[in-house]
Design a protein around this nucleic acid. Structure first.
Lengths: 193, 193, 193, 193
DNA sequence: TATGAATGAGACTTCATTCAT
DNA sequence: AATGAATGAAGTCTCATTCAT
């Protein structure tokens, strides 16, 4: 894609994020996204195959960035404990700082078609694998229990964090999400040892 | 409601469960549910206000039963440890034995309108509160840490279990869900102590 | 019909009049009329062929009475002038005293099917013919112009009165309808002479 | 609206007029109107908010024109007598020349929802006011009686003409409507003097 | 005579996508 | 590359009427 193409591509994704956050998944028609982006309806289809493609791309672009951030941050940690804390910290902090993104990914995009949710799964998978690697790292470092089931444990950790974020959003963010990191990580680490 | 009325009411709910499990949320038209139930389309509306009402009722009836089962089982336990184990056991076992219900509640009904998801929230809330009570019980019994944040902890536990079920479904149930109880509870109990 | 049959027949017609007056033509379902009458939906069909038949019967019974009243009153008049005044007086007074009937016949039943409106026409026709006879009587008595077109004139007179009633209803009956008799008749009589 | 937009707007209104005249109000589905107009069903909704909006627009466009015609014609008259004659002449002649319009407005659209009838009232009101002004003009010119009730009189005149048109339509237009002008106006003028 | 649960046809409207300009 | 007018499929719900009891 040329730089010019990229610009409009990003323009549309930003518009989609805003429109979905403001109107909900079912209230977000292509025409609304086009209007917000300042382009014609038809133009959308020069950059995206169909509506679903916009949503998948939104997920991939925005959460893909997040996953990359997770990876580079984890690399700089000295222990599995630190790594897990770092992951939880980024997870909560980033979503707290990007409420629209949090809202769209946690609440709105979950009410989409099987197709889309499969694509979402592909984006989330590397993140879950990252958590898995941390668990393995902890086990090989000797800081985590040796009898952990890594496949199960990664789900417990991811599911727990995911629910905390969703609950925070539904509660209208009356409290600090990043303020939950310490207690969450403490629960995980004790569970892992 | 008379017994006769109840019969047809249940008939329709059962049909809805089957149809949604087989066709997905978006592929489940009223006409399909009516056909499966062996009644006319209009008959549905003698028992349910609208389509959404069927789904809400499905959730309330079926998961409401589950929550009742949780409550009575928890009462018979001797410790918070036992109670938590019991909850996880029922959660995993019941959904493993009711795959259609699991599939519909974990996967299909989540892609529904805000209205429906609010109603779902009302059904899930008592369950989350039950978990909260167990955490409090453990703290007052002295078997759990005193520095637990009960509101956060209940989310961590519920979210973790919820994710395990969803993941099991998406993996096409290649392994035993109830087989995850011991390791899951071990993770929780260590985290709680 | 037996007397017992008549009772329920009248019961249903009264209920229909009330329900239509309160809920409008489109808001008056058979079930509502049945409820108001205190009978089962199906019972309605023992006394009336279908919904339209209720409305037609309502018109025939209630306005038929009115037309009979017109006839007997007109017989007792001494001149065409008196007869016309009597007709207008009854027309306005009776509808003023039966607002529900006025409302249903002037406003609600006009938004019905062609079939029903034809039946209504049959009920109204004798009334229009009565007016026609009065015009003829006036011409033969020598009190009305000899160049009157009786077919046209009867329409002018009926249409004018009909509009006054409808307008009075739409204005929420802020003024007296019977108070319009004198001025209305004066307009007619001058027009006829 | 651009000229191109106007074209299709008119196209749909014309189609609606024809379809309603041929099939009656209740037999006029959107799909039928779209087919007659040679557009897709959905296209209708680019030009009209909903089905009712088509009917209201039909009334406003077509009868609005008529009212404008009344106004400009009345301005050119020399006396209230002439003005009233002109109004009746246009009323009868125009509807005689636009049978579809007459049929739809006199017969079909009267069986519509309260909403629509309110909108119709708004279109008819200026016409009734025009008649009122003529009555006032005649009184101030000294050619009409001084004891006329203008509010009542305008209704008598409008109602009378309205009934003549409706009756003419129901009689299957076996006679000339415009042929009734002279006798109708004579009746009015005598009644007014 | 009476009931009322069950029936099932029927239509408006939305909105993702296309394509002529 | 961009437009935006046009498309047309698809599904929920109502309610007059029936009929087994």
């Amino acid at each position: 894609m040329t730089s010019r193409k990229m610009e409009k591509y990003e323009l549309i994704l930003n518009a989609a994020l805003k429109v979905i956050a403001e109107n909900g998944f079912h209230g977000s028609q292509i025409s609304k996204i086009a209007k917000e982006a300042g382009v014609a309806d038809g133009t959308i289809y020069l950059y995206f195959k169909n509506k679903e493609d916009i949503l998948i791309s939104l997920f991939q672009e925005r959460l893909g960035n997040l996953v990359a951030m997770f990876h580079s941050s984890v690399k700089e940690t000295n222990s599995a404990d630190d790594a897990l804390r770092k992951v939880c910290e980024i997870h909560f902090t980033e979503l707290e700082n990007n409420v629209n993104l949090a809202y769209v990914t946690q609440i709105e995009l979950r009410q989409s078609s099987l197709e889309l949710r499969k694509a979402i799964g592909l984006v989330v998978k590397p993140y879950i694998q990252l958590i898995e690697h941390i668990v393995e790292r902890g086990m090989s470092e000797g800081s985590f229990r040796q009898n952990l089931d890594v496949k199960l444990t990664r789900l417990l950790i991811f599911g727990a964090m995911d629910e905390v974020v969703t609950s925070w959003l539904i509660s209208d963010r009356k409290y600090s999400l990043s303020g939950q990191v310490d207690k969450t990580v403490e629960f995980f680490l004790k569970g892992l040892k």
